[in-house]
């Protein structure tokens, strides 16, 4: 019996080691039980991005999260953003990837919502749309939705529609969320869901 147990332990060791060792705590899934799961990639410290519930992600401090819609590039994605007093706003980078953003400074289409207003910028940081009637307010949920369809990107913040913007940027699986604020800031992204533009 003891030999059997020792044999099992010996045989199990490489599997245990490789499964623990190759697991990546910086990545997790939300909407995992739905037909449109989203993979979240934490690009900050371990505790800075966490799965708040099945459809929500909470970001704390200076960090970055990549919401990935696996194998789907042309999507409609919607979420509700709520931040605390310490948060100054947040940025969304669309039609780019984390590697492109970090290593090649390809910003993609950028949506900035802060206490001054809302700006939508193209890849050259030219302003596509700007308004100060929509602002970030702590504790007030803001519904954000966007759609990438071919060369068109449409963005909706609250009840206001922006675009469609025509762009030559390729559509990607990634949506990058960057909170603007100091270490005490917190941003909750809830009710995140997406669907493919073309099934």
């Amino acid at each position: 019996m003891s030999i059997l147990l020792l044999t099992l332990l010996t045989l199990a060791t490489p599997f245990v080691v490789s499964s623990i060792g190759t697991s990546d705590p910086y990545r997790f899934w939300i909407n995992a039980t739905t037909t449109a799961p989203i993979r979240v990639w934490n690009r900050g410290t371990l505790a800075s991005v966490e799965k708040f519930d099945e459809r929500s992600v909470r970001m704390v401090g200076k960090t970055r999260a990549v919401l990935t819609t696996p194998k789907q590039t042309e999507v409609r994605l919607a979420m509700t953003a709520i931040g605390n007093e310490q948060l100054e706003g947040f940025r969304l980078h669309l039609r780019t990837t984390d590697t492109d953003l970090l290593q090649h400074q390809r910003q993609g289409i950028t949506l900035v919502l802060d206490r001054q207003g809302l700006r939508i910028l193209d890849e050259h940081q030219s302003v596509l749309a700007s308004t100060d009637t929509l602002r970030y307010h702590a504790g007030i949920p803001t519904r954000i939705a966007f759609e990438h369809d071919g060369q068109w990107t449409r963005i909706a913040v609250g009840c206001t529609l922006f675009g469609p913007f025509r762009t030559h940027l390729p559509a990607t699986e990634a949506t990058i969320v960057v909170p603007i604020g100091e270490d005490e800031s917190s941003l909750l992204l809830k009710d995140i869901a997406f669907e493919a533009v073309r099934p």
């Binding site: 490789s18 042309e74 990837t97 492109d100 071919g150 060369q151 390729p170 559509a171 990634a174």
Partner: peptide
């Protein structure tokens, strides 16, 4: 497969639209 982690980005390029 054991020693290498692979990351993949997918892009959809639209050369002509509308």
């Amino acid at each position: 497969g054991i020693v290498t982690r692979t990351e993949k980005d997918t892009y959809t390029h639209t050369r002509q639209d509308t």
